[in-house]
Nucleic acid binder design. Structure first.
Lengths: 228, 228
DNA sequence: TAGATTGTTAATCGATTAACAATC
DNA sequence: TAGATTGTTAATCGATTAACAATC
């Protein structure tokens, strides 16, 4: 039996496929080709076929993919055919926004517990949840079978929260704090750091051309730079 | 003069470097090596040296990089040595959270205008901004020299907002809506789609039971039985 | 059948890492 | 000087894309 390592890039595309397939399903579209998917999602059709083929043979030659069947398969691959429980630490503006964003409820994944170490926030309601003190984290993780943690505390507190998550037995972390975290191997971590995202976009603005070109290889030509 | 194409991967690391360098600067650290940076940021030191070398020779052999000097250089490369103005469309929970997140003020980048097409939100205050009707977008972009747009509307509205941004002459977009947008070549777009991020983490729940060995995520149920 | 489209292998492209001469 | 560390080239690794036989 061959052991294929599925790359993170592949896994990250699966929810994108799933999302569009769900749209197609709602529109009662029965069948879709890798070409259709590629056009819509701005991806190479060969890449889509290859991604899916890692997990099985889901299509029919000459026909395409059955939308409902492919949805079912991807949901299974992503473990979304069973409930996945999420905890969030940091009931600030961003944390509250994410809690209210319950649009992924339909995907069997939901935030079931919110924490904050500010005593003033204890018991405050956010949607149908109430803010717990951070000390309750280990018990809640156990009691509610929580496997993913979201961090929305300031950068200065993020590592401490991550450590607590790890100790409580969480399997994966989504970190919104603008800092790099040290996490033991075996725990997955994704960074959702929009401040870095935003700053990196500034690179593509028109550079002012004042400085000496010798020392500044970043001139406006770079910003155009071929469509990809 | 050589025109080197700088990859997006490189550009995206620059703000990460900058952030840690700023921390070092605050701690009065004068010099840092690529080894130090790599340890802290979980990156290969050779990669860091290579990234920086695309833009010039910023270090000293046998010594390392001067923190203050490198900050200055990276800020210049990223255009953060001049004000960068940002507009945000979608004054919901997430949009308001981002507006209140003015922690990147110190980087010369700030949200200067907020829009929403809900008449009920017109004039509502968010921090020191007030919500404008979407019709004002083109004029605001011109008047306030706005070059980056943030989209925090529902997925169903996101393409319309993107089109407005492009027409108004924006140079780059940060899209928080969970959908793929069609954007003309030459305009940069980054996706900050945390719902996909979160869903993709679910993949690692069952499959990753032993940490380092690549394990076969294609279990027998998966590989089998395309009904078709 | 003829046209379409998959699954998969091979080719290409790009990014990361290793290695080391230069030199502080 | 001896040790440290850069800048850069070469080697490696991994991901994307092209191509096409299989086949619906």
């Amino acid at each position: 039996m061959k052991q294929i390592k599925i790359s993170e890039a592949v896994v990250r595309r699966l929810p994108i496929y799933l999302r569009y397939l769900n749209e197609l399903s709602i529109s009662d579209v029965q069948t879709v080709s890798s070409q259709d998917l590629g056009d819509k999602l701005d991806l190479n059709p060969a890449q889509i076929r290859k991604d899916l083929a890692y997990f099985g043979e889901f299509g029919r030659k000459g026909v395409g993919y059955n939308v409902g069947y492919l949805i079912e398969k991807i949901r299974h691959i992503l473990n979304l055919d069973r409930p996945i429980h999420v905890a969030l630490v940091g009931a600030g503006n961003l944390g509250r926004a994410l809690c209210n964003y319950n649009m992924y409820l339909k995907d069997n994944m939901k935030i079931v517990s919110v924490f904050d170490d500010d005593p003033a926030k204890k018991g405050v309601a956010i949607g149908n949840l109430t803010v717990n003190p951070i000390q309750m984290l280990p018990d809640e993780v156990k009691d509610k079978d929580i496997s993913i943690g979201i961090i929305t505390v300031p950068a200065s507190e993020a590592q401490k929260v991550a450590d607590r998550f790890v100790e409580a037995g969480i399997r994966a972390i989504l970190n919104f704090a603008p800092t790099v975290l040290k996490i033991p191997a075996g725990i997955r971590i994704h960074h959702a750091d929009f401040t870095s995202d935003l700053l990196s976009l500034a690179y593509y603005m028109d550079h002012d051309l004042d400085s000496d070109a010798a020392e500044d290889p970043v001139n406006s030509d770079d910003a155009e730079g071929a469509e990809q």
